[in-house]
Design a protein around this nucleic acid. Structure first.
Lengths: 202, 202
DNA sequence: CGATTCTTTGAAATACGTTGCAAAGAATTA
DNA sequence: TAATTCTTTGCAACGTATTTCAAAGAATCG
């Protein structure tokens, strides 16, 4: 026996470094050098753990996806009423600017996914999960008679997720006409109306 | 006097070539070579007309934006009723797959815009115009008593544009859970509900 | 045709990023 | 401490994309 492996640890560092590097430089301008810099190690070390950068990007995508989703589930599960749940879902779905590296990473990957089946599959996964999350909340609200949906729960959920995605995209794009506050309000207004239930995003 | 300049013509060719190249390779993988190939000329010629590729990208962005927007305006203006107008706006707003190079270009540029004020400003311009377009249609529908909006026209318009953007993004991303047909229906359902007016996207 | 100006090209020079690798460094055990 | 294995580094070699430019080609006019 000899020196023990600590690859899991380092790889974790690199995944975070990759996310930060993408947030700063974008997927287009991403260089090995940037990842190394963010991780505080040399280019050689990055290659040692990830001979193929694509593998690192896949891991980073997975991490961003998992973190973003589970963070929401966690917050939502801490709420009692469906009403509170939906407010929290909105709040976590469209976080305040400046947008975190998780979200930046996810939106950088969108167009990339159009040319890469692996990433496209992950995009689909996140979409499905988020739709399911809203669907569960709506069904819960129906059970407790809090909500009176005017449409199929799935249709509402899909529309809500789409709204979230769009506003987050525009926030990432620095569209000056869109603010996080306004985005949350639009989503909130939509859900409030279609679920026939009063609540605000604040 | 001597040989006349024909730069305007060639530049136009290059703008289209750039859009096609971006649609194929993405903004990340874009090479001078690809643009030259699409335009059927040499790399040297591309540099002759656009010493800075960034300038070409700005032009391509402008072209994609203008074409996408004015195409919609044109189609919408040909309709008599507000009801027909909104159906056409939806149809042109979420075109069938495969997505044209205009839309691909626009979505490739979204995250890029986050790091580039010039592109960010153009994104904002397109957003504003599209919101205005829906707003005008809604107001027209109100005048003719076709629509009975449950919310402020601007709020509805912003929500509609956001939905469009999101679905188009997912279509560009090859999200298997989203189809153009389904996207149009979701948008149609939203507008139909909030405007208290019957119409379908087909 | 000859002069002039615009256009196109291909190649050399240049710049930049990745890959591969040898060597040094660090952690653990016998 | 010596042996072993894992880790880190820096650099040379390499590949690829952009920049630059001289020279040839094309269009127009006098």
């Amino acid at each position: 026996m000899a020196r023990p492996k600590e690859q899991t640890e380092r790889r974790k560092d690199l995944v975070q470094a990759a996310m930060d590097a993408v947030a700063v430089r974008g997927l287009s301008g991403l260089r090995l050098k940037d990842i190394a810099q963010e991780a505080g190690m040399s280019i050689g070390s990055v290659s040692y753990y990830y001979p193929e950068i694509e593998d690192l990007l896949v891991e980073a995508h997975r991490e961003a996806l998992e973190r973003f989703y589970w963070n929401r589930v966690e917050h939502v599960d801490q709420c009692e009423s469906a009403q509170q749940q939906i407010v929290v879902a909105i709040k976590e779905g469209i976080p305040d600017e400046p947008v975190t590296s998780d979200l930046r990473m996810l939106y950088e990957l969108h167009t990339y996914a159009g040319r890469n089946p692996t990433h496209a599959a992950m995009m689909t996964t996140l979409w499905d999960r988020e739709v399911s999350l809203y669907e569960r909340i709506i069904e819960r609200g129906v059970s407790s008679k809090t909500f009176s949906p005017k449409l199929d729960a799935r249709v509402i959920a899909e529309t809500a997720v789409a709204l979230e995605d769009s506003f987050n995209l525009h926030l990432v794009s620095s569209n000056e006409a869109v603010t996080a506050r306004m985005a949350r309000e639009r989503l909130s207004t939509y859900l409030s109306g279609v679920l026939a239930c009063e609540f605000t995003s604040d």
